[in-house]
Amino acid sequence: MMTDATLEPIPADIPQAPKRSRMRSVFSKDRKAQFGIIVLGLFILGALLAPLIAPYDPNEMTLDMMGSPSGEHILGTDDLGRDLFSRILWGTQISLFVGVATVAISLFFGVLLGVLAGYYGGWIDMIIMRYIDLQWAFPNFIIAVYLVAVFGTGLLNVIVAIALAFLDDFARIARSMVLTLKEEQFVDAARVQGFSDIRIMVFHILPNAMAPIIVQATVSVSYAILGEASLSFLGLGVSADTPTWGLILADGRSFISQAWWLGVYPGLAIMLVVLSINFIGDALRDALDVRDADI
């Protein structure tokens, strides 16, 4: 069998080689992106090492209730005497996991639908697009709230609910990329060689459609984290005894006039992570040369 490499022309308008150096030059200049990488890195490290570095058990109640930040409890304690820092640290695990898992699911199925719709057209496209238009008629957050209302709370349900709410964004982008790319000569070349549709979609079209999908995925992780926090805050989240950022804020809400730290720090954690991801996403958009119109 012939090697693919010799027969896979790289389209002239999508330069492949300079991408990596462009990435490096964008990230080496972009202070915001550097801030994002460092802060997000610290949170990821904190999430991974939570069992080792958390000073207290996040659910351990003590008599030191609503203690202000001190040497012993650096972010203070809540109304049940639980250490706020340990709770936020453990909450990082859930937030980051939900963010990444949600987008992974949403990306896989969304891109699958979008590629099928764009590549085959006809009735497949029509059915998929009607579904996507229908989903477009609901605000994303309302979809997630309704799904959790119907199927119940819990980690898996929250992930599935948010993933489903984002599905249409990925499908839309993937479809429009495929519609442009399938007219390109390198796709004709692959077809002439008798490659299967699946092979053409996965190895020829998809790699060239990745830039806007990567940017959208980054943005979606930040929305997913905000979404999970909002659901938890409303009591529709993972569970009442798993410390998540939204839940910690909801628990502390009644006490904020006496204990401001309960209202400030969990939200600060959410904002720092989301801000970091948004900074990185913005730099990726520059580096991958994705215009807003593509998304």
């Binding site: 909002s230 805050f233 939204g246 904020i256 939200g267 904002m271 989301v274 801000l275």
Partner: peptide
């Protein structure tokens, strides 16, 4: 503005 959860801003 884009990164701040609205319910957190509300609490602040």
């Amino acid at each position: 503005g884009l990164s701040m959860p609205d319910f957190w801003l509300a609490i602040l």
